[in-house]
Simulated scan of single mutants.
Amino acid sequence: MTITVYGSYRSTCTKRVLTTLHEKGLKFEFQPIDLSKGEQKDPKYLEEKQPFGVIPVLVDDGFQIYESRAICRYLELKYKDKGTELVPTNINALGLFEQAASIESANFDPYASGIVFEKVFKKRKGLGEPDEAKVASLKEQLNAKMDVYDTILSKQSYLGGQVFTLADLFHLPYGTLLVACGEGSFFESRPNVKAWWNRITSRPSWIAVKDLE
């Protein structure tokens, strides 16, 4: 078994995949893609790895797949018997997992990634100063979403129920960047969200990945 990840340690999507690999206890090789040099847009990379010119890409014994959430689901399905079970098999629990995964993609990621782009990535990419009006709008919307999170998490330990799943893991990269850019109140100001956030950020898999540069 040879697993290779093509990506960047600074990439949120790459960190999502690396965290999953650690949760599953899988060994892997890492092939860095230098985003600052535009290696992800190289014609060979576009043809052979990722036609949209983004990262990460995972190659597993010759099988190739891209899109970070798809990669994470693939790893869980193929290596179900390894490490942490990250997607339940019971039909009801699976339904609640899919619900939680949809919550993350619809109610967290668009707002968190938008704030992080304005406050972190925009400057990193030399695209100017943050659009403060846009940040304020995104924060208002995300605050409303996190109020609902707090209600959900008052009844259960994790977003999909009582066990940690990919739905929780998917929050880690952008959530951590929110905290790093001074927006930790999304988590700290809500008791149930705070307890959940502390649980998921203290996992050894995330500790192993979060500070990689």
Rank of each mutant, 00 (worst) to 15 (best):
E129G: 00
K27F: 07
I91K: 10
G182Q: 09
F117R: 08
K15T: 03
D60K: 09
V87T: 02
L26P: 11
V5C: 09
F186M: 02
M146F: 15
G83A: 10
T19F: 01
E183D: 07
I71L: 08
P173G: 01
Y79G: 04
S68E: 10
D34Q: 15
L153P: 02
R124F: 04
F52H: 05
Q31N: 15
K194A: 05
F117T: 06
F164P: 00
K78W: 08
G95S: 14
K125F: 14
P51T: 02
F30L: 12
F97G: 01
G38S: 11
K80N: 13
P191A: 02
A101I: 05
Y9C: 06
S154C: 01
L166F: 06
L153T: 08
E29M: 12
G175I: 11
I91E: 13
K49F: 15
A101L: 07
P204V: 04
C13Y: 13
S8Y: 14
L172P: 02
F121T: 14
K44R: 15
F108N: 02
D61Q: 10
T165D: 05
A195L: 05
K194W: 07
R69Q: 07
F97I: 02
A133I: 11
F30N: 12
D109C: 01
E47C: 08
F164K: 02
C72V: 00
P110A: 05
F97L: 02
Y74A: 00
I152V: 10
T20H: 04
T84D: 10
F187R: 12
D211R: 03
L212N: 13
Q64K: 15
Q64H: 11
Y6R: 14
T176P: 00
R16Q: 10
G53D: 11
K49I: 06
S137Q: 14
L212G: 12
S189P: 08
S202E: 15
E129P: 00
Q64A: 09
V163I: 13
F28R: 09
W196N: 00
D150K: 13
A70E: 08
E98A: 00
Q99P: 03
E23F: 04
A180Q: 15
A106C: 08
F187W: 09
C72T: 06
Y9P: 13
V209G: 01
T165V: 00
R124P: 00
E129F: 02
K194S: 11
D81Y: 11
D147C: 08
F63Q: 03
G175P: 03
I152W: 15
S113H: 09
D60N: 05
Y45T: 13
F186K: 02
V120A: 10
V135F: 14
F97Q: 04
G62R: 07
T89S: 14
L153K: 07
K119F: 03
K37R: 15
Y111R: 06
K119E: 10
Y74H: 07
N92G: 06
P130Y: 09
F164A: 01
G128D: 08
E129S: 07
L58E: 08
T12M: 14
K134N: 05
I55R: 12
A112H: 12
S68M: 11
V179C: 08
Q50C: 04
M1A: 15
R16N: 07
Q40D: 06
M146W: 12
K24F: 12
L58N: 05
G38I: 10
R16A: 09
V193D: 04
K155S: 07
Q141T: 05
W196F: 02
R199V: 03
P173L: 06
C181Y: 13
R69D: 03
P32A: 08
A133P: 03
